[in-house]
Nucleic acid binder design. Sequence first.
DNA 1: GATTGTTTCATGGAGAAACGAAATACAATA
DNA 2: TATTGTATTTCGTTTCTCCATGAAACAATC
Lengths: 306, 306
Amino acid sequence: MKQSSEKIGDSPTRLQQDLLGQIIGLIHQDGLRPGARLNENRLAQRLGVSRTPIRAALEHLAGGGYVERQPNRGMELLALPPEPDAAEPAEGGEDDLIVRIAHDRGRDLLPLDISETELMRIYGASRQIVRAALERLADLDIVERKAGYGWRFLDTLQDRSARLESYRFRMLIETAAIVEPGFTLRPDWAEVMRRDHEMALAAALAGQWGPSSSVGFFEMNAAFHEGIGDASGNRYLAAAIRRQNRLRRLSNYDWTHGVARVVVNCREHLEILERLEARDHQVAAALMRRHLDMASRLQPSFESKD
Amino acid sequence: MKQSSEKIGDSPTRLQQDLLGQIIGLIHQDGLRPGARLNENRLAQRLGVSRTPIRAALEHLAGGGYVERQPNRGMELLALPPEPDAAEPAEGGEDDLIVRIAHDRGRDLLPLDISETELMRIYGASRQIVRAALERLADLDIVERKAGYGWRFLDTLQDRSARLESYRFRMLIETAAIVEPGFTLRPDWAEVMRRDHEMALAAALAGQWGPSSSVGFFEMNAAFHEGIGDASGNRYLAAAIRRQNRLRRLSNYDWTHGVARVVVNCREHLEILERLEARDHQVAAALMRRHLDMASRLQPSFESKD
DNA sequence: GATTGTTTCATGGAGAAACGAAATACAATA
DNA sequence: TATTGTATTTCGTTTCTCCATGAAACAATC
């Protein structure tokens, strides 16, 4: 048996899975056709890793029937593999746990003071995972180490004033980002954003709003604001916006404002986008300010959830 | 022997050391005199820990001769222990390592790509410490995980444009902090700040500037800016300012601008402080803007250090 | 009854060992 | 020579146990 000599087997690693997606992306980007050969060295170099995980990823692709190994001559492309949906929020147990902890604390399912081992029991996660999650939550000022043992929630989450402060902060930095002298929008990014928003808008208008749309909508939203930060040319503005999104991700994964608000949101984003493409930064900034100001006035209906 | 029953011995724990300092602080704050008794329960409650580490800390105080254990009646204060200097940058191996790594990378003593084990070898630290340091550096966008194994420096440090972006960002958020509607300065904080700055100013004018003054000066400086963030009443502004200081701490521990600049810096801070106390927020913000703008124009003389 | 002294339990850190997987070096093949 | 196939080395995660130490309960003392 030839297969047994390559020990690929069952589960692709995190890295291998990432590489798999990137390889597929490169295949499309380079416009390869069936019959083309995939050079391992070049892939390894372009993706910044060694050949080992590349080979494993290719082996997985072969398992799907998209490529075939030609002995001593490498992998040949048989069919174009479909592009996977980008940016799923990391199923496994890393960012996932952070969201779950924050969510459960928001519902008062977790006590204010809690120890690592207790969290390990509750979520069935290893100490390391729990630790990493707590560290990152601490970085967002959501928990803090107690002096001795254990951690304490700071309850920035359901805090009403925290929400307003967050919006005030965002109004400051996001408008500033838009009027930065070095602001330059990447045209391809704007294109993708427009398309995504128009699709979301159409879906919302058609009443297609499933329970899974919530996360996707949030991520599109986040990508919009982060893209503006990146375009500002100031890495600290960009980092601050990204940080705010990380914070919002913890409490905003379930959309509580209904479809009507989704429509408004998309339209406002599209309007800002238009102004940005027209280099009308002053108006775009004003629109952004109003966009955030309006959003800050919405009442999050927390309690009526289970 | 009575001592052997209490197993305190040699090395005070991190927690015990912290508590020791805090207990001393409370003794002074409460204005206790020799003869007073130190209640374990109350100390434990005020400091948010159990009695166990409190007892250990008190035992250490007894070792210094400042208190004495009266059997079954607790600790009696014999003499006022001296207040330790606050905010030493954590000798041990936590924050310390972060600064050292950043410093060495800034001097090009570390390669761009590096593995954890290599860092362990170089600094003789445990894997955990190195990991924690790298995670925090990653959080500041100074390193990033490579796809496979290892880490890569992003070199935000000696990057000239990063420096300017940082100052632009600070000009934005720190002036915004001052003009926040909820801005309220704690009078005691202002008092301490004024005193510290005047002392530093006097020392600088007298030409007393040792190699150790550098860190202390930086920390005073940082405390000033962070205090303004805290006074703003917006936790995200405060957090952003604190984060910028954390970043600056990595490259600014050695002051390269000479004593003259220390004098200017202190005077500007004192002027801002005055305006703030007079509730003259607009002018204070303008002064802050100019303060940062001037600082951003200084040329950091990097290379001439060893 | 309040406070200290003492014991017991739980927490989380340190260290070692084992393992899976990525990096690297080397051999084989076109 | 360039590329793939294979073996070796290295890395970092996982998992385990051990143990100091902090939390909490209980007993003793004033």
